[in-house]
Nucleic acid binder design. Structure first.
Lengths: 339, 339
DNA sequence: AAAAGATGTGCAAACGTTTGCGCGAAATTA
DNA sequence: TAATTTCGCGCAAACGTTTGCACATCTTTT
């Protein structure tokens, strides 16, 4: 018995009144008599009437759905972020249409098109690594559908975005190590192609200069983030004429590799600081003594909030130039909570 | 200039033909002349015409959207699963409407209602821990919208579900330890309220009896999964008159706590087997020598596939009883890949 | 030359809801 | 009592698309 859902029409027919009256009654419109309202509402409740959202969305071209395109849902950073996004969406009565690009530019393009045809009210995107052209996002602009970029920001003008700044966290991290008495601090950095690599480096330099110390570029070695690469980087650092007493690693994986390696060669007096991307690191035997936290949950919330604000913003306030949100969520040093 | 999207009407007007002709031309309907088709398609392309999905969905009451309600998006198991779900949805041209219940029965109820009003074609649910009534799912049944339950299955009849069976994996795990020469195997199990706890126990017992060994219930201790609880459980096991030489732990966190504790009391000759829920465990210093894998990605894919099959199934084949999919994805023992 | 078929196109209804406008009846005012 | 206002409700259009049906023109068959 595939019960077709009750419609406003049926209510009207049963009560022998017009559909418009029913509609207005259900919306407590002032021009409908009290008795009529009661009758309509009572019957609607009995028949389990629920407005057909598809019809409503179609009517005013609004869906209360935001699209979210992320590179990898299984990556901890993104899955934490989507949790924040969904929480805000839920709170503000929106729903989340989710898709992952798997860092494939082609798939991303298709997804953007799909999101558009699904009629999302706004789009939240963390762009794929392989994405190098950005016209597929332009379409949204033309249709006046807001996009907020998130974490991975395309290098184009006039966009809204939320991202984290690793400079401050790295600054704090190096500063923390200096305060702790370290004078020679190594850094295992990532490939030069990543923005994140440069931000780390800058934070490092700033901390040194802020403490009136000379910056030695050879104490920063880049690394392909593999285990072997990490070991090579560690060797470079350990053979440095000024052997570091502390190391800042690009991420938790690199930290793990490095710590394991240090242990394997019976090196114990080395402090590590890393970047928090693994929820588990605090549970482990050897943990970095501190972590630079990027707050993906918070970032996700922020991005979703901005997007929904944009959706509900009065259209094109005449005269005033479009203002772009460029929110930077500062990263922060968090000390390890292990005793 | 908020370019309103091109509609079929405008094309018709410009070409001075009727909307129906345009529609048919775009669909390559056989009754439309070749020249007309060409003209229509050419203009449509020029105007970047794209059919308004909302209108189409409204017309046929189909949305090509599946709803997914999970307890926690940031939990590794679920975020891996959603990745699989999305991959299948993408492949089969569906989109995923995502929400998390945070294990709150009330929020789950609201989400189910929201999914319904959003007009999803099907629903995929892993029920919240606190959910104890199940009427909110009945509505979908009445409307003939399929639901597939996933991992956390409600205790009701006549439902489709995909879940994993930990019996087989646990059997393999214990069997593996026995083959390795262990004769006294402890198990740190979870609270008795969880199905998963019983499945683990059963797998354990089966392995013992399959090897014609006596099962000693006191070698299975339950635990609240906290660090303190784990340590207590470990103490119980280590003080057992038959001190275990290997331990199966309820999950990776418990494994970590237990291994850390063992190490802290200088206990080294203990083998651990755990259940894979943390992607990182293989990178660590001390890892379990093997893990029972539940394949959340695969489970997600399977569940999505079944759901979409159900959506596209010819309605109510008359006479034949409704068949329910009860898919059990067997768990498997995976040896640690660390040398 | 008339009937039949094929071909190309348009009309209009349908999907469920909202909303501006108008109209009759009752209630108020002058 | 007549003029005006208020109240309660219905009509119909609109959103964009698909589709059954009918109609006209042209081509073929008898």
């Amino acid at each position: 018995m595939p019960d077709k859902p009750t419609t406003i029409k049926e209510i009207a027919k049963i009560l022998k009144i017009s559909v418009s009256t029913v509609s207005r009654a259900l919306h407590d419109h002032s021009s409908i008599g009290l008795t009529t309202k009661m009758r309509v509402k009572k019957l609607a409740a009995e028949l389990n009437y629920e407005p057909n959202q598809r019809a409503i969305q179609f009517l005013h071209g609004k869906s209360f759905v935001i699209g979210v395109i992320l590179p990898e849902l299984s990556e901890s950073f993104f899955s934490t972020a989507i949790s924040g996004i969904e929480d805000i969406a839920y709170k503000r009565n929106y729903t989340v249409l989710l898709a992952q690009s798997h860092d494939d530019a082609e798939r991303e393009k298709l997804l953007v098109a799909k999101m558009k045809s699904q009629g999302v009210d706004g789009l939240l995107v963390s762009v794929a690594k392989t994405t190098s052209t950005y016209e597929h996002f332009e379409v949204f602009k033309k249709l006046n559908i807001p996009i907020v970029f998130f974490d991975r920001i395309p290098p184009i003008k006039d966009i809204h975005y939320v991202s984290s700044n690793l400079k401050t966290g790295t600054f704090e991290a190096v500063n923390f190590l200096l305060k702790k008495g370290h004078r020679t601090i190594g850094m295992i950095n990532g490939p030069g192609t990543l923005v994140a690599t440069h931000e780390r480096k800058e934070g490092y330099i700033r901390a040194m200069t802020a403490n009136r110390l000379k910056f030695d570029p050879s104490l920063i070695v880049s690394c392909d983030l593999s285990e072997d690469g990490t070991i090579k980087a560690m060797d470079t650092l350990l053979n440095h004429k000024r052997k570091p007493t502390a190391v800042v690693t690009f991420n938790d994986y690199v930290a793990l590799f490095a710590m394991r390696y240090a242990k394997s060669i019976a090196l114990t007096n080395l402090d590590f600081v890393s970047y928090a991307n693994l929820p588990i690191i605090n549970y482990m035997d050897h943990t970095p003594i501190a972590s630079v936290e990027q707050f993906p949950y918070k970032q996700g919330k922020k991005a979703a909030d901005i997007l929904i604000d944009l959706i509900n913003k009065p259209k094109n306030e005449s005269g005033s130039e479009q203002a772009y949100f460029n929110i930077v969520v500062e990263s922060e040093l968090v000390l390890s909570n292990r005793k």
